[in-house]
């Protein structure tokens, strides 16, 4: 469970990233955060693992209170909280397996990392993670030789290698084409359900958020302006969050998951019969 109590983020240049955010995200929940760019979605996600330090309030991940000033505590927290990025953030010059093993860093002695001599059980965990995203055969290929969708799967495997309680995903499919975006989101959703990992995803595509999330949080100008189950996030509500009417750019289209469609959204019915 993640709890935000009166969280404020003020950047060093005085820009207010978050103001008075109060949230409770339950264990095993899949939450999508929507909002226009600059609304504070990335800031919200990055406060959870301390990549952006909050300036006031109390933040708890599980039982632990997040303390952005203690580097050692942050490292311990980050070993339990995995993160997925829009641009995958892989080291493209090394193998897929070595990228996944970056996720074992917190559990690996520094000298082993320096030599690149990982324990057999860590490697096994990395292989299992790759198996879960279905690219175990690519383990010894260079990360740069993979397609965008495969690279994002490697990033997901890297997170899984951490054996995390929480997954944070910052626009995980924004640089992928619509069919690939759906495949990656389906993988993420499946893994989240299999392992019961609390997952927070930033999205700017409304239809993806509605298709895969349990709960939607709408943000505007650093504040939470909507919080509710997917069914309540109707077009009218989201237009209120965005302060403008919805356009074709707010949806990715492509193939959604059959059966998870909510009436009144932009996914064409024909596309649902996958």
């Amino acid at each position: 469970m993640i709890t935000f109590e009166n969280i404020d983020v003020v950047y060093p240049n005085g820009y207010k990233g978050l103001s008075n955010v109060n949230l409770q995200i339950n264990k095993g929940e899949f939450v999508a955060i929507v909002g226009l760019s600059g609304a504070g979605k990335s800031t919200l996600i990055r406060t959870v693992n301390g990549l952006v330090p909050f300036t006031s309030g109390t933040l708890r991940v599980g039982d632990e209170v997040v303390d952005p000033r203690s580097k050692a505590k942050l490292r311990r927290l980050r070993s339990r909280v995995g993160m997925i990025f829009q641009s995958f953030n892989l080291v493209t010059r090394v193998s897929v397996l070595n990228n996944v093993l970056v996720g074992r860093s917190a559990e690996t002695p520094t000298w082993r990392s320096l030599l690149g001599w990982y324990r057999a059980e860590d490697k096994e965990l990395a292989f299992q993670s790759l198996e879960r995203v279905g690219i175990v055969d690519k383990a010894y290929m260079r990360a740069s030789s993979l397609s965008g969708g495969q690279q994002q799967r490697v990033a997901i495997a890297r997170v899984l290698a951490q054996d995390p309680e929480v997954i944070l995903a910052d626009e995980p499919v924004a640089s992928l084409d619509p069919p690939t975006a759906h495949k990656v989101m389906r993988d993420l959703r499946r893994i989240q359900q299999e392992l019961g990992i609390t997952t927070i995803v930033n999205m700017h595509h409304l239809d993806l958020a509605r298709s895969y999330a349990d709960r939607i949080i709408g943000m505007r100008a650093g504040e939470v302006v909507f919080d509710g189950p997917v069914e309540e996030a109707t077009d009218a509500v989201i237009e209120e969050v965005y302060q403008r009417s919805l356009t074709a750019e707010d949806i990715v289209a492509g193939d959604a998951v059959p059966g998870r469609a909510v009436p009144g959204r932009a996914v064409p019915a024909a596309k649902l019969q996958d």
Binding site: L51, R76, R78, S79, G82, F85, S105, S113
Partner: peptide
């Protein structure tokens, strides 16, 4: 950033 986020 990814290595940081993984607790390295």
């Amino acid at each position: 950033e990814a290595a940081d986020a993984a607790g390295a």
